[in-house]
Design a protein around this nucleic acid. Sequence first.
DNA 1: GGATTCCAACTTGTATACAAGAGGAATCCA
DNA 2: TGGATTCCTCTTGTATACAAGTTGGAATCC
Lengths: 235, 235
Amino acid sequence: MPRAATPDADRPDSLADRVYARLKADIFDFRLLPGDRFTENEVAARSGASRTPVRQALYRLQREGLLEVRFRNGWQVRPIDFGHIDACYELRIVLECAAARKLCEGGAPGAALAALTAIWQVPPADRLTDPAVVAALDEAFHLGLVEAAGNAEMARVHRELSDKIRIVRRLDFTEPARVTATYDEHAAILAALGAGDAAQGEQRLRAHIETSRVEVRKITLHRLSEIRRAAAAGG
Amino acid sequence: MPRAATPDADRPDSLADRVYARLKADIFDFRLLPGDRFTENEVAARSGASRTPVRQALYRLQREGLLEVRFRNGWQVRPIDFGHIDACYELRIVLECAAARKLCEGGAPGAALAALTAIWQVPPADRLTDPAVVAALDEAFHLGLVEAAGNAEMARVHRELSDKIRIVRRLDFTEPARVTATYDEHAAILAALGAGDAAQGEQRLRAHIETSRVEVRKITLHRLSEIRRAAAAGG
DNA sequence: GGATTCCAACTTGTATACAAGAGGAATCCA
DNA sequence: TGGATTCCTCTTGTATACAAGTTGGAATCC
């Protein structure tokens, strides 16, 4: 990580950074639902900060595609757009397959994937099941794959994509069958790449991500209606 | 009272937007050289705006990787990092080749590339030579290729990449031989894609971008030293 | 003369004040 | 009663004031 070399790496986060992180978490944890509207003053009051750092955070989230600002008319959590989500999944396939090819370029990648193998190629009894944990591990798997390919810009774009789809992607692991499938498929992908078989690794990656896309779409629609019903009933 | 599709589509740019555009142009036109340092107040004075919109613009450029902020110690135009530029070119190859494959998926793309063909497949006598014009056309060619593939997220990422490398890329067309090569190669790429030959189109695209990367690197190093020498002599 | 210390000028980070405009509720008129 | 209109409140956009921290150099000491 080249970041560590910069002079103010150890400086504590600014207020704007903290507000940014908090808002992002609010969105991912469905405390702020897609379509919800709010104002800068509300966020400022909740954060205990003034509008200045709040606005900095809001505009950053806007650039990342999570929020929308309406001229002198408040902010809105960008509604979930499955067309956009699908585009992100398709781009993920492009990037991760490119990373897989790159990894296998000079023969089998070996050491670069050791950490991932230790997590995913384990006996069924050792597999984890907590949805939140598996979701984090899954994201780390795909991020790690691209990271290992060694193109920092590709890794950055892929991280951005992961941020954008996280709001729906994490729901994939609330179903035990999907967790099992994820373990199986990750292990198979690692096996192919570990053997230096780029073509097979690529094909398995593509199938894995595409399956995930379809499943996540179904689960999200179901979950969103559940949350809305609960919110309507609870007040 | 008919309104545009999006509510604030016809709203004039905010001050922050104008400052952003101006700074970006300053960087791309070498009025701000890589490594140059400056303060928020300087920019505010030049723009006739206050620090608030200036800061908004600066932080946007920082997130795009063009500037760096040093805690209570001014701003700096990020020095040119050829490692980073190379990574962007490699990612361009990945994205544009994916777009080419996607374009050829359902047979020959045909109409989608008509506008590009009209520009690039012209008799030698009709070819343009002004470096600035050809640079703009070249960027439009590659953007149009990805745009035509129909994945908005892929197009957005590719636009971001184009922004990042523009500072060096545009120098490619200051040499007449490179302009000629660009015309030839673009025409050949369009011919392959127009015939629905994804494999050949992809191979030509890859070679074209890779050549450009190498040439641009040489030209940039030469040009930067020229500019520095002129600046030192001129005061 | 050289190294060191300390200060004052600047820099960004944050808070607050002011300006311009959008939206909705109350009101007025037919 | 229905509809248009006016006006007031609240919103974001921008400017300014204040706080915290860095740095370069002058003054000082050895």
